[in-house]
């Protein structure tokens, strides 16, 4: 499959996923949110439950809510769901389903001079998302509680650009009363959103690379997920096309004679490398082949 055809199919899946996850059209029209029982279920991607169209809950927001409440010290339900999602597909959720990923991909299509971050800067910056996950999503909601035993959802409150874009802006546009409440915090969140959106124009998947706590968590499952991308090094010509087209700038192992698993925690399984490889050396496979693990 050529890259254009692959991108078109992926875009259709991304748009369809965003539409299904945010299918409550009446919410957009009336400036209200969905209140059905489906919101007890966490969707596998970063999709704000304050979005007027959202039919399910954001797992990152839900985790902070449970940890930041007075009843639980561990979020079995949300973590369990994320483990099952992660084991099933790894970061394929980021590449094919996440609406905020779609927005970044669309912004990445704007003609602009892309910034290539030097590896010595890029590599440490990528650990930032793990710090966001550990500190803002887990530790602060768990430890920084008020006198009633309740903590803020730190990531949602101070960082999450998806919440501002999918929830804040549509609700504010529809509700004058909410608009009147917007203050310094909203301005801060708008600033973060603008930085992230500009970042996505200049650096592909800027938010996914450096900040997304959900991507950080799913990345840990890439090696063990049912869905795998493998490189047959005996077919690989070492042309480097795979690395050049990768939006996450993943270093893919080069020519040799082995079959290797592409298990980088950064790989969002978008499949562009597979579509672009002129030798057809990258394939989707399960974990059956013993040869994969001999290197």
């Amino acid at each position: 499959m050529n890259v254009r055809k692959h991108n078109r199919i992926r875009r259709i899946i991304q748009i369809a996923s965003a539409a299904v996850l945010n299918g409550y059209a009446a919410g957009f029209a009336g400036g209200r949110i969905f209140t059905g029982a489906g919101k007890a279920f966490c969707v596998p991607v970063l999709n704000c439950y304050a979005c007027p169209g959202a039919l399910g809950s954001c797992p990152i927001g839900s985790m902070q809510t449970v940890l930041g409440g007075s009843r639980h010290r561990f979020s079995f339900y949300v973590l369990g769901l994320l483990m099952v999602f992660g084991i099933a597909l790894g970061r394929l959720w980021c590449g094919f389903v996440c609406p905020f990923g779609l927005i970044q991909d669309l912004l990445g299509m704007i003609p602009a001079r892309r910034i290539k971050i030097a590896p010595k800067v890029d590599k440490p910056l990528r650990y930032l998302k793990y710090a966001v996950l550990l500190i803002l999503v887990v530790l602060l909601p768990l430890l920084a509680k008020n006198q009633y035993g309740i903590a803020d959802a730190w990531f949602c409150k101070y960082i999450c650009p998806a919440g501002t874009l999918e929830g804040g802006i549509p609700l504010m546009l529809a509700d004058r009363q909410l608009r009147s409440l917007a203050g310094a915090l909203f301005s801060w969140k708008m600033l973060i959103l603008i930085v992230v959106l500009i970042g996505a124009v200049l650096i592909p998947r800027f938010f996914c690379r450096y900040l997304c706590p959900l991507g950080a968590l799913y990345g840990l499952f890439n090696r063990y997920s049912f869905y795998q991308l493998n490189l047959d090094q005996s077919c690989c010509t070492g042309c480097n096309t795979c690395t050049q087209v990768c939006p996450m700038a993943v270093e893919i192992p080069k020519a040799g004679d082995k079959l290797v698993q592409i298990s980088s925690t950064e790989c969002i399984r978008c499949g562009r490398c597979k579509a672009a490889c002129p030798a057809g050396a990258i394939r989707v496979k399960g974990l059956r082949n013993e040869a994969l693990y001999r290197n």
């Binding site: 966490c42 809510t65 203050g183 708008m190």
Partner: peptide, 15 residues
């Protein structure tokens, strides 16, 4: 999770 999600999350939207 449901209780949180069916009310507008004010911190999510920046209020």
């Amino acid at each position: 999770v449901l209780d949180k999600a069916i009310h507008i999350c004010l911190e999510c939207i920046g209020i």
